Simulated assay, not measured.
Amino acid sequence: MTGLTDLLARRRSTKAYRRDPIDADVLRDLVATVAGPSRHGRRGHGSAHARYDVHITVITHAVTGVAAAAYRYDQPLDDLVPVTTGDFLAAVADATIDADWLADCPAALVLSADTAAADDAFADQGKDRGTRFCWIETGLIAQNVYLWAAETGFGTVLLGGVDDDAIAAAAAQWLPPGHIVTAVMPVGTVPH
């Protein structure tokens, strides 16, 4: 098999994680690989008109060398920037429809977008066009997370089943203004 074919064969959704902490360098590698600049200065995922409306907030729970907090990925700096301290993963788990187990994961990526701003930017293309592009971009980022997990031996799953009001309340301290959560992707070590 070729490299990509092999990765796609190993790509899977995982809802069981060991409680072991993950290393901060692993988390930084994940975010830099998924959304950071490539050697050509572009990102590893597509975005309509290269707007990159989907943002990544990293919620840490058990990451060695990193406090439990919410961090925003700053693509130009290629770094995680602290937003606010605290362990928010249990509140995110409570806002999902059926993912109580998320509370014990080492970390999660929360993908979000200001869909109203995106709709304004694409108003000449029709109603809700920007929202559509945000959902597509979320999917492209999610696939990159899955491929990273398959390559490194970690686990992830795309959680889209969230209560909109509950997740907005859980994320009020750290979600960028005007954003809605488009997906939650836990990251952790898979049990053997």
Rank of each mutant, 00 (worst) to 15 (best):
A69T: 05
A118L: 06
G178V: 00
D94T: 14
T96H: 10
S13N: 04
R12E: 11
D124T: 03
T33K: 12
V81K: 13
L27E: 06
V34H: 14
A67S: 12
T64R: 11
V54R: 08
R28E: 14
L159Q: 03
A93K: 04
A183G: 08
T85C: 13
V66D: 07
R132M: 13
D87T: 01
A99G: 04
S112T: 06
L147W: 01
R132E: 12
H49D: 15
A108E: 07
A9N: 08
G139R: 05
A99L: 00
P82L: 11
P177W: 09
L89A: 02
R28V: 10
A93P: 07
A172R: 11
Y17H: 02
A91C: 05
I56W: 03
L159N: 00
A95L: 08
V26D: 15
A142Y: 02
L111S: 04
V26F: 11
I59C: 02
T189E: 13
A113N: 10
A170G: 03
Q143N: 08
P21Q: 01
L159D: 02
D79N: 11
T156M: 02
V184E: 06
Q75P: 14
K127Q: 14
A150L: 04
G155M: 07
D98E: 10
G178C: 01
D163T: 09
A48V: 12
S38K: 12
R72Y: 13
V162F: 10
R43F: 13
V92G: 11
Q125K: 15
A9I: 05
